[in-house]
Design a protein around this nucleic acid. Structure first.
Lengths: 239, 239, 239, 239
DNA sequence: AATGAATGAGCCTTCATTCAT
DNA sequence: GATGAATGAAGGCTCATTCAT
């Protein structure tokens, strides 16, 4: 175990990525300093330039080298094949997502970095979207569309997927709020499981209700206009 | 005289607060510079320290002087008294919340600042929670508890409220993702209304299903342990 | 006297320009350090940024604020009106130029900076050419053209002017050589006067010979082609 | 074997010298970076210290290994023996000098490096003077002394030689000025020949006039004092 | 003979802050 | 109440150099 860690952490490069990731997650890109990272990693400050070009390069390397690991370690479908019922796949998807974000036994700073990227995207965010977020989102959209009985590309499917993800993300993004409203609560394995069960129940009920209501069609004129706008994008809105 | 100045944003202090708010929202506390703020406000750079002590004082003043206005302008219940059915009040609450966050006709930077505070809370966040978030959250919890038929202080009520808010917040916090997954879509009034309708439908269905399932009770042993942990707070979890 | 100096050297700005000019002249732009300049000037290192934006701004300010003084202090014609004979005006021009470059009683670093700009021009060099060099050169060309009896825009006039300036500049640019070939010789007032007399004698003889030879015309075919090339600029040549 | 390598520029050492010379000529000693040189030469960055000790050693090797070649390739007298008339030998000397400096068909960076050494001499400059400049200068002084009819060690001979060299050097050192005053003009073979003809004519006329005037003698008291100072060196003058 | 990794000194710049006026 | 000038700390980055291999 220690050996495996040693394998990962020998060499300036690896140590730098490890420490920098934590530092970027805790302080953000602007507030994290190259000096502090190098000191904590026990390497010379010029190593950043040598191995990564500059601070941004180190940041990029942090994100890229880790989010693949996160996916590999916890595949979104949790090993479930597409032949399983959509309801079951939804439950696994939600549980996996929450575990990846909240479980403290795993380097959780990738999720924190992503939360920061949401608020203030940098150049790496596009890549994160393409390689990490979009595929998972497409998978989720397929699941919810199947439950609703709608097209995967329908407005309803998009928004339903957003609703599922939004419920999960709340615990990550608004952790500070949760800690203040129900103070002292940590996110251990059991707590995460409880959250997963709640979100799954809530979402399934909502999705089933949508199927009965007939998805887009039954919503009347407002929905039709809504749909047109959704996919065309008129560019209006707040800056 | 002083009142008139404050209202019209003439005077160093008021101009500073106005410009700084926008700048903090756009760049974040660390990246916003005192110099840029003072230049845009047309005041001397020493004015910040004179009026607010330091940069953090200016930030504090920005947040405090504005979030009350936001609440006053759009009360969460939208003027609906407690005698109206909970379902209706929920719809109004959701719509109001989304409008406050997404509508471009209102200085939206308070919401952006709050999103940043979520990721990296500063000292003002506690106050924001106490005066701004917690009361609204209590109100929402009351509404959902009524729909579910549970106690307002039950785990289920808390989590259900989180689920409602999470669905709304997603459009704010993950705006960058939404823009990349469905590019070109803006948040005009109609779009916000559409989102509100969706979130309300989805939430109502979920809440009603919870009532039928019997809330906490039916969930068995796992839920009981979950509840105990929820309110005790064992302190474990990630730092 | 000390008062006059005090007038010039009070204030961070003035002290900075003074010291920086000397430092840039001695070490060159790249080798001169902002730290050393500020230390010698007794000001904080951030003063450069405040007053001049950056190191290049300080350099620009040094050059611009001084070459006008140099011209004002020693006008190229030395006060001689155009009604005086061209031969006399040539002698004054040469003497003034040499004094400006070599006399040690005057801040000579402008000439050193210019010598560096010749070898490796920076962005300020264009301005130096336009405001400082080109006008003087045009004046000299007028003088020599009058002596030769040719057009001021003729190839011969250009090259004759180059020859005059080249003889003077040698003592500046190749000072290191002169010091090694005839070591120990300084450039005091008498030495400069001697040089001026020599250059004037040599140049006058050369120019008069050109008049007798009939300037461009008598030089045959080679000169005609030469002239065409001179003013057209075929762009060939070494990089 | 080693000879073949040196001739063909294979081998780390030779490639390094070649590339470094160009880089030093283009950017100057301070601005040229070891890293860039090694990259362009395709060798490891540590090779500089291994083969030359340090950056200065590489620079020294560049200059020393090349200026002998330049002389060998274009002997200053152009093969003319001392039996030819001094006027002819002067013309050949001037033409050869200009070609060596300006002709683009020859690696011109030695001249650029020398121009830099003039402005800011390093330790190699003394050697360049002794082996390269002084002998040529002595030869030129002999030629002009013969034309003037004075001693080769007379003040007049020195200054006359300076005047000849100064006229040539102008085109090299002040290339940047020439390019701005008569833009577009390149230094191809024909242009260089034209310049050589001009400088020769101008110089010859000046020198002949000096002979007629009786050189030093006729200049009166001022010249006597001048001469004393010239060879004694009072040490005064700018630092 | 040669290499890739690592080092430490030092540079320019930026920032929030304070000082006299 | 307000200003322009000045400060000091710190940040990112670059460079020549050296260390093991």
């Amino acid at each position: 175990m220690a050996d495996r860690e040693a394998e990962h952490l020998v060499g300036t490069r690896a140590r730098l990525v490890e420490v920098a990731g934590e530092e970027f997650a805790r302080r953000g890109f602007a507030d994290a300093t190259v000096r502090a990272i190098c000191e904590r990693a026990g390497v010379n400050i010029a190593a950043v330039n040598y191995h990564f070009g500059d601070k941004a390069g180190l940041y990029r390397a942090c994100v890229q080298s880790k989010y693949e690991k996160s996916l590999a370690h916890r595949p979104p479908e949790g090993g479930l094949g597409p032949e399983r019922p959509a309801e079951e796949r939804l439950g696994v998807f939600i549980a996996t997502m929450l575990e990846r974000m909240l479980d403290s036994s795993e380097p959780a700073w990738l999720a924190r970095i992503m939360a920061r990227e949401m608020v203030q995207p940098t150049e790496v965010f596009d890549e994160m979207c393409d390689h990490f977020i979009r595929p998972q989102f497409a998978m989720l959209r397929g699941i919810v569309a199947e439950i609703i009985g709608a097209e995967a590309e329908s407005v309803t499917a998009y928004r339903a997927a957003y609703s599922v993800v939004g419920q999960c993300l709340f615990y990550k993004h608004c952790r500070a709020v949760v800690e203040r409203i129900t103070p002292g609560q940590g996110y251990d394995l059991a707590a995460v499981a409880g959250i997963a069960e709640h979100v799954t129940r809530m979402s399934l009920a909502g999705l089933r209700a949508m199927r009965e209501a007939g998805a887009d069609g039954a919503a009347g004129d407002a929905w039709a206009a809504d749909k047109a706008r959704f996919f065309s994008g008129d560019g209006r809105g707040m800056s």
